Simulated scan of single mutants.
Amino acid sequence: MAEEEARSVTVVVPSLLAKVMDDQRELQVGLEEPATVAGVLDRLAADYPVFGRRVRNELGDIRRYVNLYVDGEDIRGLDGTGTHLRPGQELLIIQSVAGG
């Protein structure tokens, strides 16, 4: 298990998304080279299709109310979904919640 974690990123999701991911708030996702945010999202969407639809639209773009951060940095200020990932990094997914 430790070897697997050494080649993976930690994906942290909000409780609303965790409900469609077997109630997991934190997942270890193994990396394939070259590892990108898009690749990690593809792997998660393959295992959790509802997750995929809630995070990306039909064109594959990140939905406007979803924010992704790699080690605390917004991917919009990096290379978007093309942002490269290294083992041990954290991908945080946050959904904006509207209300009033």
Rank of each mutant, 00 (worst) to 15 (best):
Y65F: 15
D42K: 15
I62E: 06
T83V: 10
E33L: 01
N57T: 12
Q89H: 00
G39L: 11
L41N: 04
G39S: 12
I94D: 05
T36A: 07
A38N: 10
R76N: 11
V12F: 01
G72T: 05
D61I: 04
L17G: 05
I75V: 15
D23W: 15
G30A: 14
G80C: 03
E33V: 01
Y69Q: 00
E32A: 11
L78P: 10
G39Y: 08
S96I: 14
L85G: 10
L16S: 14
L59T: 02
Q89T: 00
E26H: 03
D23P: 10
A46I: 01
D23H: 13
V66I: 15
V20Y: 11
L68S: 02
S96C: 15
Q28G: 03
G82A: 09
L92F: 10
V29Q: 08
A38L: 12
R54G: 04
A45Q: 10
V11L: 03
R54T: 00
L68T: 02
L44C: 07
K19L: 08
L91N: 04
T81M: 15
D74F: 06
R25Q: 14
R43P: 05
R43F: 02
G82V: 00
P34N: 10
G82E: 09
S15M: 12
H84P: 12
E58W: 01
Q89S: 00
L44M: 13
L92I: 07
L31M: 06
E73F: 14
P34K: 13
V13K: 00
S96H: 14
T81I: 14
V20E: 13
E73Q: 15
D47R: 12
V13R: 00
S15K: 11
H84G: 15
R86Q: 11
L41A: 04
I62G: 06
D61R: 10
T83R: 03
R43K: 14
K19G: 04
R53A: 06
L85A: 12
R86H: 05
L41T: 02
P14N: 13
A45C: 11
T83K: 08
P14L: 08
